[in-house]
Amino acid sequence: MNNFKFFKPQSFKELLDIKDELLSAGYPLAGGSNLLVYIKENMVKSGTLIDISSIEELKGINKVDGSIEIGAAETITNILESSLINRELPFFSLSLKDFGNPLIRNKATIGGNLADASPVADTAPPLLVLGAFVSVVSRSGTRKIPVAELFTGPRKNKLEENEVIQKIIIPIPLEGKGAFLKLGQRKGTSISVTSVAVWIESSSDKFRNIKIALGGVAPTPVRALNTEKAFSGKNIDRNSIKTFAETLRKDIRPISDVRGSAEYRTEVSINLLKRAVYECLEMEE
């Protein structure tokens, strides 16, 4: 039988203190869309639920020094509705429009989605191509972890037991264009079979600084570094895009499960990547 306690820190400092005391037995609770499911499914059986939903330091969407900073406890809906993000980085808003469904988006937070470290976390691929960081805090201090280094395995992250994610820092790219394509088994409320994010800095005549990341095709959301290299410095022409996209086979390690086979995930990831590149380049399909 499960046995939980509830604690609501009154300040950020109190949050860091209790997290320092409880370590892995302290579960930050924001929206609850992951944690309450894990409790109901007996995947988590005891501990203290630490209510972080009212901590001001975990809130806010601001522009700071050329970056967008999003408090970890901001909901996906708040991000989607943020005029700042829609103005400064519309790619990120667009990439969240198929996150779960409106009922979940009103509850799920960006910090929760990242800390959960699911291979299909939908916020991850866009953040990976944007070179985002998470700012992680504990009583001993603050450190920045690139999202690219945050995930260490399925539902495993790099946070120390006394740390919490405070905010997500997204450098606003000076130029370029992004695309995020998600493929689910159905159109509403779908869990990604695969998802592909692409950011292309230059679209003059050669690919320069193309960034590619995927969800659902490896133990964690991943950057596709080999594929990026395949594109990099090459002339932009539609026929070669498909060829370069094939390099994905070297970057992804999908598994077969009820949502799709490894082979299918591989093939459609390649096709989605091709499409996402077209979309960035505003090429007709």
Partner: peptide, 25 residues
Amino acid sequence: KGDCGACTVLIDGKATVSCLTSAIQ
């Protein structure tokens, strides 16, 4: 488990599933 929406209520005007909402919160 938040998969069907039958338990939807409004919290501060936003629709969400009450099954994945902590009562204390």
